[in-house]
Amino acid sequence: MAPRLLAAGDDPVRPGPSTPLTIDVDGEPVTGIRGQSLAGVILAGGTLALRRTSVHGGPRGVFCGIGVCYDCLVEVNGQRDVRSCQRRAADGDVVRTQYDPLPEAPEGDHA
């Protein structure tokens, strides 16, 4: 039960030959095809949650897929806040999921 790439042989658009690539996602290798977005590679690798939210710590994944919701932010090669749905994957990319807890509230402030 996961997102997956359509096998090229079954694909009526007849894609050209594909070049495989491998990225590192939190230490795990994930393979994809050149031209895919980082989000696409990670999704097709079976992972839906790309980050944890700051307030509730819940999982978040791709939502809009076209760069407007910023829900798919990841750290790429040390650079934070990259929309993984907009960034094409490059072989060897090192991706880290982001979790930025809120600053602790000052003492006496129990909002």
Partner: peptide, 18 residues
Amino acid sequence: AVDLRTELGPDFPSVEYD
């Protein structure tokens, strides 16, 4: 900051005095 919190209660957003 203390008075407003006491007066307005916990439902009121915090003034975030820090």
